[in-house]
Design a protein around this nucleic acid. Structure first.
Length: 432
DNA sequence: TCCTCAGGGCCAATC
DNA sequence: GATTGGCCCTGAGGA
C-alpha cells in the first residue's frame, strides 16, 4: 500500500474536509491542501478575498477563494516554517517528534473510544459515559497525575483538541514554532499584503481616541462564530450517523471545545495582543483560558438566553433538565453561572462591556511576564474605556463600572471550579 | 541496511 | 497563462 493511504487517511482534512493523505506541514491534511500551502508559501503569495473573508471551505469550494483557504490553513495550524526555503527534497524535518506524539494521542483516543463504547453498552447512564468522554481530557493522552496547572506541550490538532489540556496544547504548540521563526514566511505573507498594510503598523487603530470602538471593530462577527460552532456540531453528528445522536452534555462540551479555539483566534488576531512577545502571549492565554470561556458563556446567556433556559447556538435547553441529569458539582456550576447571568442581566450588560471584560481578563499582569508594563498599560486603558463607556451609556447607574469589575472575581471563581471539575472527570475516567 | 514517510517536483487537468 | 491536485522522487532518521 502506498503510504498516502494509511488508516489515518480515514480522517478528513481540517481545512477542506477532503481525505487526509498524511502529515503535511504540521498536521494531517489532504494532498490538495498540502500542495496549495506549499505553493502559497514558496511563491510568497498574497491573496485577497472578494467577499467577507469567511468563505465556506470544503472539497468543492476550496478553489474559489485562495485567501480564505490560506487563512484556514494557518488557523488550523499548518506551519509555514515547514516549507523549506532551500527546497531540499526528502529527509525529515524537526516536526518528526510532533507527528509521533500526535499519532500516540490518536491511538490512545481510539483506545478510550473503544473502552467507552463497551462501558456505555453496560451502563444504564449513557449521559455519564458520554459526558466523561466529551470532556475530552482522557483522549488527549496527557499525563493524568500532574498538577492541573502543569504546562503541556503537545501537538496541535484542530479536531481532537478539547478543554483544558488541549487549551495548553493549542497555545503551546501554536506558538512554539512561531517564536523560533522570527522571519517566518507566514509573517512575510501577511505583512506584505497591501490590504493589511498600515503606515503605522497594526497598532495604529488603537492610537485613536476611539479606543473602545477600535476594540469592537476588531471583534469577530457573532453570527459567523455561531455558524462555525454549528457547522462543527453538524460535522460531528454527520460522522456519527443518525443512530448515534449527540446528547445535551455532548453538545455543550463540543461547543466549549469550538469556543476555545475561537477565543484563542480572537486573542491572536487582536492587534493589542500581537504587540506582546510570543512567550507572554502563551503565558496570558494559559492563565485565563477558562475565564474567557466562562465569560463568553455568560455573555451568550445574557444576550440570547431566556429565563430557565440555557442558550446553545440555535437551541434552548432547560436548565432544570441539565441539573437533573448532571452530578452535584456540575449542577452547582450551572446554578452559580445562572445566578451570575441574572446579575449581569440586571446590569444591562452590553457587548462593549463584554469586550472590555474579555481584555481585562486576558491582560492580567499577575502572571510572570516579560513585558509586564505593556500588559498593565493595556489593562489601564481598557479600564478607562470601560469606565467612560458605562458613564456615558448608563448615566443613571453611577456604580455600573464598579459592579461589573466585581463580577470578575466571580468569573474567576467559577472558572477555577470548571477546571477542577474537568480534572476530576479526567481522573475518574482514568481510574475506571 | 532497509524501511518509513514527509518533504519537493512534475505535469495533465482545470480554471 | 495560471492554478490545482494527484502521483512520484528523494533522503534523513528510525528499526
Amino acid at each position: 500500500l502506498n503510504h498516502r493511504h494509511r488508516p489515518e487517511s480515514e480522517e478528513s482534512c481540517p481545512v477542506c474536509g477532503d481525505r487526509v493523505s498524511g502529515y503535511h506541514y504540521g498536521l494531517l491534511t489532504c494532498e490538495s491542501c498540502k500542495g496549495f500551502f506549499k505553493r502559497s508559501v514558496q511563491n510568497n503569495k498574497h491573496y485577497t478575498c472578494t467577499e467577507q473573508q469567511s468563505c465556506p471551505m470544503n472539497r468543492t469550494q476550496r478553489k474559489r477563494c485562495p485567501y480564505c483557504r490560506f487563512q484556514k490553513c494557518l488557523a488550523v495550524g499548518m506551519k509555514t516554517e515547514a516549507v523549506r526555503a532551500d527546497r531540499m527534497r526528502g529527509g525529515r524535518n524537526r516536526f518528526g517528534p510532533l507527528y509521533r506524539r500526535d499519532r500516540q494521542i490518536k491511538l490512545q483516543r481510539a483506545d478510550y473510544q473503544t473502552n467507552l463504547s463497551l462501558n456505555a453498552a453496560m451502563s444504564s447512564s449513557a449521559f455519564q459515559q458520554c459526558h466523561m468522554y466529551n470532556t475530552g481530557m482522557p483522549h488527549s493522552g496527557l499525563p493524568l497525575t500532574g498538577h492541573p496547572q502543569e504546562k503541556c506541550h503537545m501537538s496541535f490538532d484542530y479536531h481532537t483538541a478539547s478543554t483544558s489540556h488541549a487549551m495548553h496544547r493549542t497555545v503551546s504548540e501554536t506558538y512554539t514554532t512561531r517564536s523560533t521563526q522570527a522571519s517566518s514566511s507566514n509573517a512575510n505573507i501577511v505583512d506584505c499584503d497591501p490590504d493589511h498594510a498600515s503606515p503605522l503598523g497594526p497598532f495604529s487603530s488603537f492610537l485613536t481616541p476611539n479606543f473602545l470602538d477600535a476594540l469592537i471593530e476588531s471583534e469577530q462577527d457573532e453570527s459567523q462564530l455561531c455558524a462555525k460552532v454549528l457547522s462543527s456540531l453538524q460535522r460531528e453528528q454527520a460522522n456519527r450517523g443518525k443512530h448515534d445522536c449527540l446528547n445535551t452534555f455532548s453538545i455543550m462540551c463540543k461547543m466549549a471545545d469550538q469556543t476555545l479555539f475561537g477565543l484563542v483566534e480572537w486573542a491572536r488576531n487582536s492587534a493589542l495582543f500581537k504587540e506582546l512577545k510570543v512567550e507572554d502571549q502563551m503565558v496570558l492565554l494559559q492563565n485565563c483560558w477558562s475565564e474567557l470561556l466562562v465569560l463568553d458563556h455568560l455573555y451568550r446567556q445574557v444576550t440570547y438566553g431566556k429565563e430557565g433556559l440555557l442558550f446553545l447556538t440555535q437551541a434552548q435547553i432547560e436548565v432544570s433538565t441539565i441539573i437533573s441529569q448532571a452530578g452535584v458539582t456540575l449542577s452547582g456550576l450551572v446554578s452559580r453561572t445562572q445566578d451570575l447571568v441574572a446579575k449581569l442581566k440586571a446590569l444591562y450588560f452590553d457587548r462593549k462591556e463584554f469586550v472590555c471584560l474579555k481584555y481585562l481578563v486576558l491582560f492580567n499582569p499577575v502572571v510572570p511576564l516579560e513585558d509586564v508594563l505593556m500588559v498593565e498599560q493595556t489593562q489601564e486603558r481598557v479600564n478607562r474605556a470601560l469606565m467612560e463607556h458605562t458613564r456615558q451609556t448608563h448615566a443613571g447607574h453611577a456604580d455600573k463600572f464598579g459592579q461589573l469589575l466585581l463580577r470578575l472575581p466571580e468569573v474567576r471563581s467559577i472558572s477555577l471550579q470548571v477546571e477542577e471539575y474537568l480534572y476530576q472527570q479526567m481522573l475518574h475516567t482514568k481510574h475506571n
